[in-house]
Simulated assay, not measured.
Amino acid sequence: MIQNTTLLPRQLGDSHIRLLRIYKSVVENGGFANAEVDLNISKPAISQAISELESLLAMRLCNRGRAGFSVTEQGQQVYLSTLQLLASLETFRSQINGINTELTGELNIGITDNMVTVPQMRITEALRRLKQQAPKVVINISMIPPDEVESGILDGHLHIGIVPHLRSIAGLTYQSLYQERSLLYCANNHPLFDKDLSIISDQALAGYDAVVPTYPQSLEIKQQQAKLNATATSTDREGIAFLILTGRFIGFLPTHFAERWVKEDKMRAVDEHNRYFATKFCAITRKGARSNLILEAYLSALS
């Protein structure tokens, strides 16, 4: 007969929550070294905390050594339970905010890369208004891919996300923000730069190397990308800009993001009347989530 043993005390204190937060960071950063920056504590201190947590739980959470870092099966289960616990704590804090007239707590936001140069500045303006209304609110921004933003909203560790609206997920609500126009660009040291760029055939375009994104795209965007001779990829738009500026690649960039280089005559749009697409961006929140006055205040400012 297997006898269950109570490993944790009946009341979890701040010290236990701290150990779990450290463990969460180690897992998400793929090891102790990368977690140092995130946690702002030394690697030996992280190692000691993980050893203390393993001793407390009487189980090995992760393997570390010459073979590299990996999470054990039990460690993965503890990680998932930790996410639930921390999300519950934030939910409790949000519920208290619903009672307390003074807004305190956190707003966790996930944003797709390179949105800060969007001319409308609605995200920035909404953050300014929120901080003015609720100076004690702590704002945490994560710059992550759209699919990670979506999963973060669904599992509760993010309150709101800003993503391109490429699909609709049943558990999320969507608030339209703005459209982003993208054009095909080449750099000033590319063979196309000094040519007539008002129009170019698909056949001629295929003669030049191009960089395309690896993140999800709408059908319209995929149709435009399919005409390119893709010999490089990037996980984000900054990476695309890096390769365009080498003068060896062409690629699509949002006009607001490319504007700085266009003004400096370092980039030019290629056949802009035919080589373009629009991307719709929206704010997403979890459908059916409990009332959260901080989130409501931010959504109000955003709209």
Results as ranks from 00 to 15, higher is better:
189 N>D: 00
190 H>Y: 06
190 H>S: 01
190 H>G: 03
190 H>K: 01
190 H>P: 03
191 P>Y: 02
191 P>I: 01
192 L>S: 00
192 L>M: 02
193 F>S: 00
193 F>I: 02
194 D>Q: 13
195 K>T: 05
195 K>F: 02
196 D>L: 03
196 D>R: 00
196 D>N: 06
197 L>W: 03
197 L>M: 04
197 L>F: 01
198 S>G: 00
198 S>Y: 00
198 S>N: 00
199 I>Y: 02
199 I>N: 00
201 S>N: 01
201 S>G: 07
201 S>Y: 01
202 D>Q: 04
202 D>V: 05
202 D>T: 06
203 Q>N: 10
204 A>K: 04
204 A>W: 03
204 A>I: 03
204 A>R: 02
205 L>H: 08
205 L>I: 07
207 G>N: 14
207 G>S: 09
207 G>H: 14
208 Y>D: 15
208 Y>H: 14
208 Y>V: 13
209 D>P: 12
209 D>A: 14
209 D>V: 10
211 V>A: 10
212 V>Y: 12
212 V>I: 14
212 V>C: 11
213 P>C: 13
213 P>S: 13
213 P>T: 11
213 P>L: 15
214 T>A: 13
215 Y>E: 11
215 Y>K: 05
215 Y>A: 06
215 Y>G: 06
216 P>Q: 12
216 P>K: 06
217 Q>K: 11
217 Q>C: 13
219 L>Y: 02
220 E>G: 13
220 E>Y: 08
221 I>H: 02
221 I>A: 09
222 K>D: 08
222 K>M: 06
223 Q>L: 01
223 Q>A: 04
224 Q>F: 01
224 Q>D: 08
225 Q>S: 09
225 Q>I: 10
227 K>A: 10
227 K>G: 05
227 K>S: 08
229 N>I: 03
229 N>T: 08
231 T>S: 07
231 T>P: 07
231 T>G: 04
232 A>Q: 07
232 A>F: 04
232 A>S: 05
232 A>L: 02
233 T>W: 10
233 T>Q: 12
233 T>H: 09
233 T>F: 10
234 S>F: 09
234 S>M: 07
234 S>N: 09
234 S>L: 10
235 T>S: 07
235 T>P: 05
235 T>H: 07
236 D>S: 14
237 R>C: 09
237 R>W: 11
237 R>Q: 11
237 R>M: 11
238 E>H: 12
238 E>K: 15
239 G>T: 06
239 G>P: 06
240 I>E: 02
241 A>H: 14
241 A>W: 12
241 A>Q: 12
242 F>G: 12
242 F>H: 14
242 F>V: 15
244 I>V: 14
244 I>H: 10
245 L>G: 11
245 L>M: 15
245 L>D: 12
246 T>C: 14
246 T>G: 10
247 G>Q: 05
247 G>Y: 13
247 G>H: 11
247 G>V: 14
247 G>F: 10
247 G>D: 10
247 G>E: 13
